[in-house]
Design a protein around this nucleic acid. Structure first.
Lengths: 138, 138
DNA sequence: TCATAATTGTACTAATTGTATCATTGTCAC
DNA sequence: GTGACAATGATACAATTAGTACAATTATGA
């Protein structure tokens, strides 16, 4: 399912900024599994109209969620839920997830005619230029 | 062989514009030798239908490839892979293709919280169970 | 041969979507 | 009251994809 209704309840008198409420509720729905990876969120304008707020407010919420890697916004395309970073999944699921991702990569590289050696070398090179701890939490 | 099937994998949510994905993959297949000089690519409309995108999106990709002298588009005739570019260029394209593909993979794995060691290990494992011969299967 | 249709890429425009910048409003400390 | 700051809104912009009309080439058939 790519497109979700995304039912949000905005309380205009709660004192909480609207964009914060949007952030919180989207976050909650992702956490609860109501929103799943690759689900497409409403456009900033559509959601804004539904909530009767300015679309910049929605955009602001989306930007915060994007920076938090919860969603991925793409100009001209739309906004999508990213894959859940596995914090609490089992080790087995974690492994399977990496396995699937890697298999897609290797298959694709093979399809493009690259050899084992080339692939191994390139992965090695890319990993070299990457500071392990820096999960880019800046 | 004049006409190729041109199997492309478009990921509509990868963040990369569709036309960019087409460019990258054609480029990679040319570099890898999977597509050879004088091979005819699908028409913009045919490829567009297959990929379920607008034909202008394919046309845009073709135009970029044309400007890069990788393909030659001829109004009313079709689109063809150009003569062999200098080996220097092919080698560069080849490397760039794999580099881009690998970077996407590593970035994604990193984003999901996997460590360098885990990634390296998984790639190594996947490569092990793969018989090298599959280089140019047709 | 010539006329005409079909095929193929091109050009221009429109629609959809998110982004950037600045203005307005409202609240709170002083 | 005044100034500072945060939240929201208004406006213009940029990126991507789609729609429509057209031009060049090739195929077809009288």
């Amino acid at each position: 399912m790519t497109n979700k209704k995304l039912t949000l309840q905005i309380d205009f008198r709660s004192g909480l900024p609207i964009y914060t409420q949007i952030v919180n509720q989207v976050q909650a729905q992702v956490a609860s599994g109501k929103l799943k990876p690759d689900d497409q969120l409403p456009t900033v304008r559509a959601l804004a109209e539904e909530l009767r707020v300015n679309f910049n407010t929605v955009a602001r919420a989306y930007r915060i969620l994007d920076e938090a890697r919860i969603i991925s916004t793409q100009q001209g395309r739309g906004t999508f839920i990213t894959e859940i970073p596995p914090p609490k999944v089992t080790e087995r699921l974690r492994r399977e997830s990496l396995e699937a991702l890697t298999q897609r990569y290797v298959d694709e590289a093979a399809r493009l005619g690259f050899s084992k050696g080339e692939i191994r070398q390139m992965v090695s090179d890319q990993l070299k230029g990457w500071n392990e701890s820096g999960k880019s939490e800046e």
